[in-house]
Write a protein that binds this DNA or RNA. Structure first.
Lengths: 231, 231
DNA sequence: GCAAAAGTGTTCCAGATACACCCATGG
DNA sequence: CCATGGGTGTATCTGGAACACTTTTGC
């Protein structure tokens, strides 16, 4: 059999990407979701998505969709899972590859997002979503937890400069449980991957809290030497 | 926009599944690979795969492909990753969803496998493979390690009755390092998820080693009570 | 002066690691 | 009788968990 006859007569499918876009604001994990504009399910809440084009990889498609809605490039994104049930999309048979992204809410293009009907909703208070998007979000949260424990991805959700309280609050949100203040400080500081700045943040206390910055270069160096990041 | 116009004019893609089929035999992790029969790359080593049909989910397609080559049903399978680079398949643009499966080599339909040109090759001594199949295998091994540590999936690779030495040997293969005999026994037995049988296996020692059987019901009970499986 | 968040150390316990010898048996 | 793999217990160490008071300063 030659290549032409091997690949011909094979069914072709619509392939979509859906993005679970995490943000962190006001001490809460949030997701960027949109009011769907097209039938079926127009007007319902949906993840941000789009179809994979002929000349782009699925990774590229996810990056394109993210940029289209947030204006952001060069963002932490990871593939979550491919959802391939025949009837998962009620409009047509669509195979969807889901990605999750971590962004700094402050950095995104707010007008652009609004133009696309996008809203930041609290993870803990998600409305009904179309198709299997709820399941995607659940799966993404599990994966986020797993990854955040052993990789320094939490910093992707915080501003460049942040306080230890903010960082702890973020991890508490991700893990869904409280963390001991002293143990958390001890552990994260012992990793020695953050730079302590002179500046203090006074927005949330009279005393002021030191700001820190994640040092990616230092992390890479230490990782090569065998550092095991764990929070 | 209505549904018909929304979904029309969207490019459609060939979607394949590829299966990384792990087995364990003679103390070694092995993979079931085939000599590819069709162009391009006919005659080269390849993972077992096939195209996703119109009426089947990607999970179903993977299960179908596995059954076709091994005769086995109802096997541990988990999705690995969706590989979506545009040019990953040199014959056409094919998006591939990879799955990995754990089977008991002794249970598979050997003649059927041979008929499909399938061979069990040692993981440590893999030849070159077509396309990105090498990468898929590497990714699968990472995922297998991660999963085996916290889920009792190692048992899927062993016969129903096995000795502690066999089990330890399997984990040594998976992790790629030796494990202390006494510590391993202590840990695995303390989980209390295996039934100790009266029978002994004398094939590998004069004294004979007790056979054990994994007790899935007991594991499920203990898990509900909060047992954390970890090896 | 007081409210509100920042910052700081020690004790305790569980689980991981390291390690060496006797046992049973077929040949 | 000896070679081979099976089976066993203890001491030590490390890292996680629990826990409460002082500091700073804006109001």
């Amino acid at each position: 059999m030659n290549a032409a006859s091997f690949y011909s007569k094979v069914p072709r499918h619509l392939v979509a990407v859906d993005c679970i876009i995490f943000g962190f604001d006001e001490g809460k994990l949030k997701l960027l979701v949109i009011k769907r504009k097209v039938a079926p399910m127009a007007g319902e809440w949906s993840l941000v998505g789009g179809f994979v084009q002929t000349d782009e990889s699925t990774d590229d498609a996810a990056a394109r969709v993210l940029k289209l809605t947030t204006g952001l490039d060069d963002i932490y994104m990871d593939q979550l899972h491919c959802y391939g049930e025949v009837a998962r999309d009620t409009g047509a048979r669509v195979i969807s590859v889901a990605y999750y992204a971590l962004i700094r809410i402050k950095d995104h293009d707010k007008p652009l997002a609004q133009e696309h009907g996008a809203h930041w909703l609290e993870l803990e208070n998600m409305p009904e979503l179309i198709f299997d998007h709820k399941k995607m979000i659940e799966d993404a949260l599990v994966k986020l937890r797993d990854n955040a424990q052993f990789h320094p991805i939490g910093f992707e959700l915080l501003p460049e400069k942040f306080t230890l309280s903010q960082l702890r609050c973020l991890y508490e949100e991700i893990y869904g449980r409280t963390l001991d203040k002293r143990n958390f400080r001890k552990k994260i500081l012992s990793l020695d991957v953050m730079e302590k700045l002179e500046e203090k943040d006074k927005t949330s206390s009279k005393k002021g809290a030191h700001l820190y910055r994640f040092d990616a270069d230092k992390y890479d160096q230490l990782k090569r030497k065998g550092l095991v990041f764990e929070i």
